[in-house]
Design a protein around this nucleic acid. Structure first.
Length: 281
DNA sequence: ATGGCAGAAGCATTCTGA
């Protein structure tokens, strides 16, 4: 089962590129961020023609997320839902469409577009941290219910200095601060693993390149788009790759798709013989 | 320290992104 995430920076501007990529890669599930379109105007037909169902949660001009799936989708939820815990932050998050979740093949897929945060001193940064704290509460609820999780999207956080092309220049700043990393780690806790780092321990792998300053041509990027899965699913994880090719398109998104292959038929439980050492990374 | 590039809204220019 191929599962992909892609910040497309406008689904309408990028439609032909997305459809071309789907035909080439044929993912079962594709999660989009920054669709930048109201639900009624989302171009669903090209996806339906290829056998997908489309679940959208969008708004005018900004943000917007979607789950596009070939497999039956159930229990669609839009925005934060905390059934047992009242979180005062939920109300301030309702106008920005940044989270959609759905149950597919017995796994809860959570597609997120984490706020950028602008700069560390700004109100937008406070909003980003509050949003991540609310996401942590959301994950706590899912864990209590015993859900298997696949959490993915644009996190706007580089988890470590390995995930930045020039850590000396950017460490401690926006997307690379201790505060953001702590907030992200509080979402993940010990329950979710970064699929990409199962297979690749080195730096030099990016999912986003700034449109400015020829960043893609110079390969000056960041790894800020991630797929996290429950530890219990780790034995079924076969690969995780960033497909940088679409970033080289004419009029590209500034993000590249990230993809995992999850084999739900694999019952091998011995993938992590040495779990302790993995979490020390 | 600042700007640079791109998309949406809407028609000149601003807001937002990261």
């Amino acid at each position: 089962m191929l599962i992909a995430t892609w910040n497309v920076n406008s689904v309408r501007s990028r439609l032909s590129q997305i459809i071309d990529w789907i035909k080439q890669v044929n993912p079962e599930i594709l999660c989009l961020q920054e669709t930048k379109v109201m639900d009624a105007s989302f171009p669903v037909e090209p996806f339906q023609t290829l056998g997908y169902t489309v679940e959208v949660y969008g708004q005018k001009s900004y943000n917007g997320v979607a789950i596009i799936s070939k497999i039956k989708v159930e229990n669609i939820k839009k925005g934060f839902h905390h059934p047992t815990k009242y979180d005062e932050n939920i109300e301030i998050f309702q106008d920005q469409k940044r989270l959609i979740s759905a149950d597919i093949n017995g796994i809860k897929f959570i597609n997120v577009y984490v706020p950028n945060g602008s700069s560390i001193e700004s109100d937008k940064f406070k909003y980003k941290i509050s949003w991540l704290n609310s996401l942590a509460s959301f994950l706590d609820e899912q864990e209590k219910k015993g859900e298997l999780i696949c959490l993915m999207g644009d996190f706007n956080v580089a988890p470590s200095s390995l995930d930045i092309h020039d850590p000396k220049k950017y460490e401690g700043g926006i997307m690379a601060s201790e505060i953001e990393r702590n907030a992200l780690n509080n979402v993940l806790k010990e329950r979710l693993i970064d699929c990409f780092r199962i297979f690749e321990k080195n730096t030099g792998h990016w999912s986003w390149w700034d449109y400015r300053n020829n960043a893609y041509e110079l390969n000056k990027g960041w790894r800020i788009d991630h797929i996290y899965i429950s530890k219990e699913l780790s034995s079924k994880l076969k690969s995780c790759v960033i497909d940088s090719q679409p970033r080289g398109n004419l009029r590209p998104s500034d993000h590249a798709p990230v993809m995992i292959d999850l084999n739900l038929n694999d019952t091998n439980e011995d993938f992590f013989e040495d779990e302790e050492s993995f979490f020390e990374i």
